[in-house]
């Protein structure tokens, strides 16, 4: 079942086919892989943490010569410290990092690379190109575009929608810009865009205010499944469920379940799977246990989850 997380990226399938056969425990020297990711402060990161721990446990069992050092950080400075500590005290051979922020982490990660280590960067690109050996990321542009295309296809011209934005970051900007671009020419009106900070409570408050402010809302792009839950509560409290539908994002299990069950209010979802950390970890591990070159950029595209394909995206065990 866990293998499926690898399958999601089309690009990865080929990699697996090539290396799957050699991925057996080999007699080799001990390699230490450092993993630095943000701490579980919201649902998506929670899922990402869970997948990271789960994958480390699995890979550790499969390849006894690999050892993983996991650290989570609540801010950039702590993450830099963690990475420096890994270099200084654990003598890591590879670093898998999801940079808390791009700018502050670029120099420290570059230093790791210059020390001759294998570097895998996940999800958030560094501000300088060509540092990492391996780049595994979701596609923020596609995330916004896929959602935008769905709105365009399913709303009549003149329809009115509202948008909830995440925590103000480059990543959020990329998504929103792609979303707006996809709507071009559709004559769909975006009434408002406020920050819900990828937080249920904040999204609930923002949506309540939208509902007070706009008598007509045809659809909501909540852009995140946590925010979608807050948004739907606000809509339910205002008893306007029949008036509008909501699109979240990421692929949270509760949301996927509701799509599977054919919830009218939640027709589809856009993936941005937290499991991409698993892919990054697996590929980094393969670098050490197989002879296949594991370098390059792997973009895991955002897909539309529909009632038809939802089962494929449903992980009941994940906390996310």
């Amino acid at each position: 079942m866990k293998r499926r997380s690898l399958m999601q990226g089309g690009a990865l399938a080929a990699v697996l086919a090539m290396t799957g056969g050699v991925a057996v425990a080999q007699e080799a020297e001990k390699k230490i892989i450092g993993v630095a990711i943000p701490s579980a402060t919201h649902g998506f990161m929670g899922g990402l943490n869970w997948h990271a721990q789960d994958t480390i446990k699995r890979l550790g069992a499969a390849y006894p010569n690999l050892e993983f050092v996991l650290s989570t950080a609540g801010n950039s400075a702590k993450q830099v410290n963690d990475i420096e500590d890994m270099m200084a005290t654990r003598n890591i051979d590879a670093l898998v990092v999801l940079p808390f922020e791009s700018e502050p982490l670029t120099a420290p990660i570059k230093a790791v690379k210059e020390a001759g280590k294998f570097v895998t960067v996940v999800d958030r690109g560094l501000s300088e190109e060509g540092i990492e050996d391996l780049y595994v990321a979701g596609d923020n542009t596609a995330f916004g575009r896929v959602a935008g295309e769905y709105f365009k296809a399913n709303l009549k011209p003149g329809a009115k929608i509202v948008v909830l934005r995440g925590i103000p970051t480059t990543l959020d900007n990329e998504r929103v810009e792609a979303f707006q671009k996809a709507l071009d020419g559709s004559q769909i009106e975006i009434l408002d865009m406020q920050h819900g900070n990828w937080n249920r409570d904040d999204a609930f408050n923002v949506m309540q205010d939208y509902l007070s402010k706009y008598p007509q809302i045809d659809a909501v792009w909540a852009a995140d499944d946590d925010m979608a839950i807050g948004v739907m509560e606000a809509i339910a409290a205002a008893k306007r469920q029949d008036e509008m539908w909501v699109i979240g994002g990421a692929g949270m299990k509760d949301i996927v379940k509701r799509i599977m069950d054919g919830d009218k209010q939640l027709p589809v979802d856009v993936t941005y799977p937290p499991a991409l950390i698993s892919s990054a970890l697996e590929m980094t591990a393969l670098h050490f246990v197989s002879n296949a070159p594991m370098t390059g950029r792997f973009i895991i595209g955002s897909q539309l989850i529909t009632p038809e394909n939802a089962a494929k995206f449903y992980y009941p065990d994940s906390p996310f």
Partner: peptide, 12 residues
């Protein structure tokens, strides 16, 4: 009862 849930980001 509002959202029926609690997480690490509740009450921040």
């Amino acid at each position: 009862p509002r959202l029926g849930s609690a997480s690490g980001s509740t009450g921040v």
